[in-house]
Nucleic acid binder design. Sequence first.
DNA 1: TGGTGGGCTTGGAACGATCAAGACGATCCC
DNA 2: GGGATCGTCTTGATCGTTCCAAGCCCACCA
Lengths: 338, 338
Amino acid sequence: MAQPALPPTLADVAERAGVSRQTVSNAVNNPDLLRADTLSRVQEAIAELGYTPNRAARNLRTRSSQLIGLRFSPVQEGTANATMDRFVHSLVETTREAGYHVLLFAGDAVDPISGYQDLLRSTAVDAFVVTDTYLGNPQATWLEERRAPFVAFGRPWEHPETRHPWVDVDGAAGTELATNHLLGRGHRRIAWIGWRKDSWIGEDRRSGWLRAMHARDLPTTGLASRVEDTVASGREASSVLLDEAQPSAFVCASDTLAMGVLQTLDERGLRAGRDVAVVGFDDSQVAQLVPRGLTSVRQPLEEVAVHIVKALEGLLTTPAVVGPGVLLAPTLALRGST
Amino acid sequence: MAQPALPPTLADVAERAGVSRQTVSNAVNNPDLLRADTLSRVQEAIAELGYTPNRAARNLRTRSSQLIGLRFSPVQEGTANATMDRFVHSLVETTREAGYHVLLFAGDAVDPISGYQDLLRSTAVDAFVVTDTYLGNPQATWLEERRAPFVAFGRPWEHPETRHPWVDVDGAAGTELATNHLLGRGHRRIAWIGWRKDSWIGEDRRSGWLRAMHARDLPTTGLASRVEDTVASGREASSVLLDEAQPSAFVCASDTLAMGVLQTLDERGLRAGRDVAVVGFDDSQVAQLVPRGLTSVRQPLEEVAVHIVKALEGLLTTPAVVGPGVLLAPTLALRGST
DNA sequence: TGGTGGGCTTGGAACGATCAAGACGATCCC
DNA sequence: GGGATCGTCTTGATCGTTCCAAGCCCACCA
């Protein structure tokens, strides 16, 4: 049985075009260096043979792989957290335009470093995108110590003095936007359901609600609840708040929590939007598809990807260029729940 | 400024352990060939230096990259189609156990082949996983002609004679399961909302509903609707069916369509589960989180990934081993809508 | 003692690309 | 006219690994 023919190499093209290997290499990487007629002759040979540079050989020689590593953590069933997935789609698209591909690797839950370490030492990727920078996770620090090139999606909350590039979305601005939207609709008693206090992101989002309320001198005591990020928690918290503080609207730290609120309303025969307003966070598919829709803060993930790739390109030039952190403003997707 | 030190090479380890390069290589790849004391001495040196084989060099020599290519198509906003994402998570996890990584690449919408072609010719990936095998897409045929190793998630509907490995989920069995579930709950007039006739997957899923209904000699005429896969279409179709055929339950080809049904019920003041039963397909986050929940057919994507990786491993041994296609049975996730 | 065989180790070549340096002719300028 | 300069192309070396064939060493046996 015929083996699939080996792909053509630089030398094959060179022979066909009657030039040297290096000239073919230049035709591919530095066309400007060649005389026009030589270039076209080489390009013709390339086309005829269907030549594409062998990645492994190029990687070996240039010590770069054109790959960006991204740790892909397992989905959490029962939540609306699809930020990761939407982000990955944007990232793949953006890296393509920059000539990179995305390498996914699974994180060992116990030792999240190991995946990074292997890829780094085997020079399998040029850089990483680190997404889960919340709550003192060690990746960023670890990578920084090893001078590994990486860009974080998320601020260095705990170590603001660090010098690695990052891109993040202004959560506080998002919840402030949401709260102001509700204020504009006449709501005054607006409750907050967020995450436990040890979450930097949660506290950031909470601060936006606080800021908007305080700007109007509206009371907030008794109107806030901090729970885990599950639908059940959102349901319970909203139930308690409705009984004890009679809010007319809820701003939530996530769509998951907001779905819990919708569940409470459903149980009590209240209509979201008409009787009580609800705003979620992340603009998940759930927010988009639930009957009458859930108004939600939407992160500009496409934009995040663009800035991350820009930062990556800076990192990978020599000498490396490290810009300041980038903070992007989210938008509000309006739907039937407000 | 100190440059990051170059990672240690085989030669460094060899020198340190007082053996030759080849012996170190064997220690890594064929430990059985070494005498116990030599092996442990080499392993010690590897540990001390923190050596990891350079992937590019290994790839160049062995003509393999330990990478699996997967085309990652953009999300469709406004639908509940998250199958792809759940599948990717499973695939990353499973490939890791087999020593592979997943390379994501963006498809050119106009020319879906181009992405495959570049990666294939540059020997950047060892094999592909092809996911969108519906409706006569050319990838599978194209790859097969070029003898590119790949495994398809999805049956070769149009060319059942093809010999490439595939893994799929039995959609008909899923809708049959859903319909029988409804029959067991006493429903007799069960409607179908599916996709247009040119979708093989859609017709397959429809056939499961038909089969279950015919097995009980129940009528199906007037109870089926074929529309586009959008919430609005599901809403309209269910509205028309309710008026004209008075079904007590709906089986849908997707969660997206099912959400349309829920919307119709919401508008008419009907309660899903109590007044009219609804079953979706894909067990998306939306199905899990919508108030009272949406019963939905769940694809065993973890299992799909396992079989795909198994097939890949067969393909990548020499000589290649091609097993028969694998058809997996879905399950039913029961929730408040039935 | 010397030949034989098997287990373990060795150095050289190869994978296919890029880097560094040099060759060659034509051009320019004094 | 001679030397420097430029544009263009070529040659040899190199990246770090694995493959290959040969070499070493020691035990075994005649």
